[in-house]
Design a protein around this nucleic acid. Structure first.
Length: 350
DNA sequence: AATTCGGGGAC
DNA sequence: GTCCCAGAATT
């Protein structure tokens, strides 16, 4: 079977069946770029509202380039992989400095920008600029591995690279953006993971090896992932009148640059919590348990126990690296990740 | 080549 | 509970 035979049926099917998505309305280079960054490892439905809000606040590349970090992270709050938006701002500054504020219509230059790898460079190049470059994401890897019955581990970079080469060789010159999107659309709506693919609705079922042999569910192959480690944490809701303490996380690593409730490694007893609060130059008046919570990241689990600690009134808005904020500020100003949602809720009900 | 980066929806 | 998502950067 020649891979290029999929082109015509896919393009015809795509024109009839493509979803009406926000970033398909006005696919400027900036719009395509923002959408592709948000869509990295993130479902379409989760992205839609973030996309609209982000562009309403930052309608152009120059707006992104000069946006304060807290506002930027607030626009991304809850979406995850926060380095995406930090890298996007770095790239925006480069685009302003190096390219006069416009994304250059050049695959290699796009690929060189922070946060843009082969997939995103291919997507922006093909969709926004009509360049013949493939955009191989998880959907495409699944679709092509089923059609060609390729049993290699799709998590390997080498497998992805080869698929990019093979697709670039058979892509149509005239509609590369539609071609790339047709493969992804097929993977997202027909040739789906986790469960039965809707082969009856597939425009290339007559070309699909796995379909012919009844082995669709055997593809793609992926290596087993290693299990998560567990971290026990104690979370403090330090209450000063109507305000609660938060602090800023380091600017590298997990949840970099976001805010959190003060917390420490391990499960502390009430006595240990009280001494820890005193270490912060605060005077605890009362302590009570605030419940337990679990949060699962890709590679680690947090098992948290919380305490509410009322402290004697301090005039200071800041104490050490602590920052006392009220409910409204926690909602509107400081980006606090979902890992702490159990304790944010706790405060909002207080 | 492995690991580290979030979060949530579908099953 | 598991899977995996329009992946990229770092180690």
């Amino acid at each position: 079977m020649k891979l290029e035979e999929i082109t015509e049926p896919l393009l015809s099917w795509y024109e009839e069946n493509k979803r009406d998505l926000p970033w398909r309305r006005e696919p400027t280079p900036y719009h395509v770029w923002v959408s592709e960054i948000m869509l990295q490892q993130t479902r379409v439905e989760a992205v839609k509202d973030y996309y609209r809000r982000f562009l309403a606040e930052l309608p152009g590349i120059r707006d992104l380039a000069v946006c304060p970090e807290n506002k930027l992270l607030k626009l991304w709050e809850g979406l995850g992989y926060y380095n995406r938006v930090k890298n996007m701002q770095k790239a925006a500054k480069e685009i302003v400095e190096e390219y006069g504020g416009n994304i250059p219509p050049d695959y290699e230059k796009i690929l060189a920008l922070p946060g843009i790898g082969s997939y995103t460079a291919g997507a922006v190049s093909s969709i926004a600029f009509g360049l013949k470059k493939p955009a191989v994401d998880g959907n495409v890897l699944r679709v092509i591995s089923r059609i060609t019955e390729n049993g290699e581990d799709i998590l390997k970079q080498s497998v992805k690279r080869r698929m990019e080469q093979e697709l670039e060789a058979v892509m149509p010159e005239d509609r590369p953006g539609a071609f790339n999107q047709s493969l992804m659309e097929l993977g997202a709506t027909v040739c789906i993971p986790n469960g039965m693919a809707k082969c009856d609705a597939c425009p290339v079922r007559h070309l699909c090896g796995a379909r012919a042999h009844g082995t669709v569910l055997d593809f793609p192959k992926k290596a087993a992932k290693k299990q998560r480690r567990i971290e026990e944490k104690t979370v403090l809701l330090i209450q000063n009148g109507q305000e609660y303490a938060i602090c800023k996380r380091p600017d590298k690593g997990l949840l970099a640059g976001l805010y959190e409730f003060p917390n420490m490694e391990g499960w502390l007893t009430q006595e240990e919590v009280l001494s820890a609060v005193e270490e912060l130059k605060l005077m605890p008046l009362h302590i009570r348990a605030a419940g337990e919570a679990k949060h699962i990241f890709s590679h680690v689990e947090w098992h948290m126990k919380g305490y509410v600690v009322k402290v004697a009134s301090t005039e200071e808005k800041k104490a050490g690296n602590l920052l006392f904020i009220n409910k409204k500020e926690s909602k509107g100003k400081y980006p606090i990740p979902s890992a702490f949602s159990a304790y944010r809720k706790y405060i909002e009900e207080d």
